[in-house]
């Protein structure tokens, strides 16, 4: 493959994945509004298009057309770059996520993954940890006490929960013996649902720790203290309007999708079928390519559903409860899980 071919294929993949990701973000917002509506016994958006399906597009147009206010007292350079950091980091991390069968492209091209990196898992963790600066700087540069409190809370929360999140993943990495996301998925492919890390790999404790920590990392309820409406108006994005606000909004939902993808890859066997090798793989090349994508999307969707369900059900933590929970329970549990997994791997 020449360098030009490589460049063109990569460009194509990047464009397609970005467009799909942005559409997924828009419709995750709709999914959330509809589901929370049903949980609260009301309809949710239902006026624009059939079942309100065109609502995200109209919302997008509205946010584009709104007036873009910049308060006079903000620190401009950081105020302007903060939403770009937040959205950029949220979109970049999808680049290492494999979402389909690897061996379907012609000429050794991996159709369903932008970049196959040896240390894919660490790349995702690294980009997520850089993404914090978007929130931290937005709050500080806004020169507003609500914003500052929101971003301080967010930084503290991220520092506390990132440890538990990283430690929860160590068990999975030890079982697969690799940090490559594709290898991790293939290590769970043999017997379908029975060899998924969450069941066959006995990593359900790690799964629960990861899920809790990830909810905190993405600032979602019940850990949405950085933007707690009742105390901080809107938290770190109080002073943002129009598209700059929309960028934070999109970053939050893009992060949710990335977290769901990672959970799918690490604990639910990624694109592999839950039936395992019971049925022979389909002969048809299109079916061979599309079935894995179907399973992947289904799993990611169920995680997004869970996100909204949790948001609609649980009340927000108090700040001291949040910190106690992270340091006193999640961290020790994650460390014990590493200990247990390594003992099991050594003596089985």
């Amino acid at each position: 493959m020449t360098i030009l071919q490589f460049f063109l294929w990569s460009l194509l993949k990047v464009v397609v994945v970005t467009v799909v990701m942005l559409m997924a973000v828009a419709y995750t917002v709709l999914l959330e509004r509809k589901l929370v509506g049903r949980i609260q016994n009301r309809w949710g958006p239902s006026r624009v298009g059939p079942f309100g399906l065109l609502q995200p597009l109209v919302d997008g147009a509205k946010l584009f057309l709104k007036e873009d206010l910049i308060p006079t007292a903000v620190y401009r350079p950081l105020y302007l770059i903060a939403p770009v950091i937040a959205l950029g980091c949220a979109l970049i991390s999808i680049a290492v996520v494999p979402f389909g069968e690897p061996n379907v492209g012609p000429g050794g091209i991996h159709f369903f993954q932008i970049s196959d990196v040896n240390i894919g898992l660490l790349v995702i963790l690294g980009i997520t940890s850089i993404g914090v600066y978007g929130i931290a700087l937005s709050g500080w540069s806004s020169n507003n006490k609500y914003s500052l409190l929101g971003s301080l809370r967010s930084s503290a929360q991220l520092i506390s929960y990132e440890l538990a999140l990283g430690l929860a993943l160590v068990g999975v990495v030890m079982r697969a013996g690799s940090l490559n996301l594709r290898v991790i998925v293939e290590s769970q492919a043999a017997k379908g649902i029975a060899s998924w890390n969450i069941f066959g790999g006995f990593q359900f404790v790690a799964f629960l720790v990861y899920l809790t920590a990830a909810y905190a990392e993405t600032n979602r309820a019940p850990f949405d203290l950085p933007e707690a409406e009742s105390e901080l108006t809107a938290g770190y994005h109080t002073e943002y309007s129009s598209m700059k606000f929309a960028m934070f909004f999109m970053a939050e939902y893009a992060n949710m999708i990335t977290v769901s993808c990672v959970a799918t890859l690490l604990f639910l066997g990624g694109w592999t079928s839950p039936l395992g090798n019971l049925f022979p793989p389909p002969e048809n090349i299109f079916a061979h390519a599309l079935f894995p994508i179907f399973w992947f999307v289904l799993k990611v969707f169920s995680f997004l559903f869970l996100y909204v369900w949790v948001r609609g059900t649980l009340p927000r933590f108090r700040y001291d409860q949040l910190m106690n929970f992270g340091w006193r329970y999640l961290m020790p549990i994650a460390i014990l899980n590493i200990l247990g997994t390594s003992l099991w791997l050594a003596y089985r």
Partner: peptide, 15 residues
């Protein structure tokens, strides 16, 4: 380097 220094430690600094 990115996770520990640029991510964790510098977040603490800015915090």
């Amino acid at each position: 380097q990115v996770i520990v220094y640029a991510g964790a430690i510098m977040v603490l600094f800015t915090f």
